[in-house]
Design a binder for these strands. Sequence first.
DNA 1: CGCTAATCTAGAACAAGTTTCAGACTTGAT
DNA 2: ATCAAGTCTGAAACTTGTTCTAGATTAGCG
Lengths: 205, 205
Amino acid sequence: MPADETTQRPSPLTERQEARRRRILHASAQLASRGGFDAVQMREVAESSQVALGTLYRYFPSKVHLLVATMQDQLEHMHGTLRKKPPSGERPAERVAETLMRAFRALQREPHLADAMVRALTFADRSVSPEVDQVSRQTTAIILDAMGLTDPTPEQLSAVRVIEHTWHSALITWLSGRASIAQVRIDIETVCRLIDVTDPRRPSG
Amino acid sequence: MPADETTQRPSPLTERQEARRRRILHASAQLASRGGFDAVQMREVAESSQVALGTLYRYFPSKVHLLVATMQDQLEHMHGTLRKKPPSGERPAERVAETLMRAFRALQREPHLADAMVRALTFADRSVSPEVDQVSRQTTAIILDAMGLTDPTPEQLSAVRVIEHTWHSALITWLSGRASIAQVRIDIETVCRLIDVTDPRRPSG
DNA sequence: CGCTAATCTAGAACAAGTTTCAGACTTGAT
DNA sequence: ATCAAGTCTGAAACTTGTTCTAGATTAGCG
């Protein structure tokens, strides 16, 4: 597969560039933690990461790109954390619900950061598709991990996609104050039933 | 229930005010149809609806408010259209999937308008909660209509919420070019299986 | 009709995302 | 060490959402 402009691998960064990138992502997460999406102001990110505004834009071509990259960063971290303590439920549906609720609790500890990342993710337009896709793949991996599957059927993949849809949208309703934590939990548990329905070992699946 | 500031009924508008409001919503939908969220620029909306910018902001306190109101408007219209030709499937799950696919086809005819409305809806923050809630209630009504239910159980309501989550999020993935029309259809059909699972007439529900 | 409060208009001003540019600094190759 | 190409900086400019102001218009009322 030839590398087109949306797939090309980033040319390797020098040490200083890598350091700049990390400073930027750190500043972004820090500002987001304080006041959510609106508090991440590009001039402030540039200033607190000691980088010129133009440079910030060279690394991340828009605020949404920056916040989606911040999310990638946090997700990787979370996937690592989740791996250490695998979910304890017996049935796959239980394990997935447990995993998502654990992630949800982590987000509740930094609601502003969650706000910034999730809003950026759903507001992203086509120019951010590759990055958003990457986040989606990572999320899929987390869910499949929890299910204990390495070789899902197309039906199961569809169920996983629906779970991801529900996860994102439920987060948004919670973040905008239209749903309680309890309601998010119920919705997650409800959608996880699809895992049972699409389990090929089930007779009626 | 006392009317607080978020619930208070709007004082009745004069005829000219009603006309202004309609002109604004019309201009908003028109610009959105051309170029989506970005093409709805407040100065342009004001100009093409022959209203001063300040007046536009008096009617709709932000661009997101305006677009969510535009969505309310379109949804009402769609609910009316859908009522005329009720879905033909036998099982509730089929009828809901059919209804949503019909709505989806309508959106495909105006993808830019869909983009503007859906992006506004998911980007809306707490200040728009009442309006977004209204849209959500309207969507719930459409789905319950299709199910043929007037008295849903809490479990069924949860399934409906999950269907709405999937609907919004699947639309977003389609609008941002990350999912095909076929994939949206599959996701809708998949999530609609929850209707069977939560049907109280089923033994294992 | 004539008054008062509310509403509307035009336009300036402000805020934050984004772009641009000239000049200084790094990097990599020779 | 030196040169060319690429990168970074600081600052200004531009765009679009939002706010503000002063004056004109309108609506409701006696």
